[in-house]
């Protein structure tokens, strides 16, 4: 597994965890009947902050774990980590981003549709974040598939 693949795997894990936290918290808000802008926007803030923190931590952890694995494998004191992004990595990244944008756009459309059919705006805002997270996960999954199956 290449460095880029490890990075994607860690990102996939992080965003799946964030999605779980979001869905559980959103269901709790629904059950408590607290579907108000304040609680939903607080959850938005939490999810955005978590996404940033998880992405930074995941990137650092991938570097550290890759270095440790390389040291164990080769016995070198300063091992070379192939963290460069070449044309294949860029192409796979672009394709993954394209799929993520597509899912995100469909989600945005569906979210706005709920507003059109008379649902409160807070439902629309909740769906925006939900589809944003799903888009990120599907984007990462498609990148993994492209690395494994080839372009």
């Amino acid at each position: 597994m290449s460095f880029q693949e490890k990075n994607i795997a860690v990102s996939l894990g992080s965003f799946t965890l964030i999605l779980l936290i979001y869905v559980i918290r959103l269901l709790q808000i629904f059950q408590d009947g607290m579907l108000e802008p304040v609680s939903v926007f607080r959850l938005w803030g939490l999810i955005i902050v978590l996404s940033i923190i998880f992405t930074i931590i995941a990137s650092i952890l991938t570097h550290i774990i890759s270095t440790i694995i390389q040291v164990i494998k080769t016995g070198e004191q300063e091992p070379k980590i192939e963290d460069i992004k070449d044309e294949r990595d860029e192409l796979i990244d672009l394709k993954g981003t394209k799929i993520a944008y597509l899912i995100s756009s469909i989600g945005g459309f569906l979210a706005m549709l709920t507003f059109v059919i008379g649902q409160p705006p807070i439902i629309m805002f909740s769906l925006f974040i939900l589809f944003g997270l799903i888009a990120q996960i599907i984007g990462d999954l498609s990148r993994m598939i492209l690395y494994r199956k080839g372009i």
Partner: peptide, 19 residues
């Protein structure tokens, strides 16, 4: 050639067509 080993592996296996 300035790419990763994984890219060479993918090219050899015809899983990627290089630029």
């Amino acid at each position: 050639v300035g790419v990763t080993r994984q890219t060479i592996v993918a090219i050899e296996k015809a899983k990627y067509s290089p630029s």
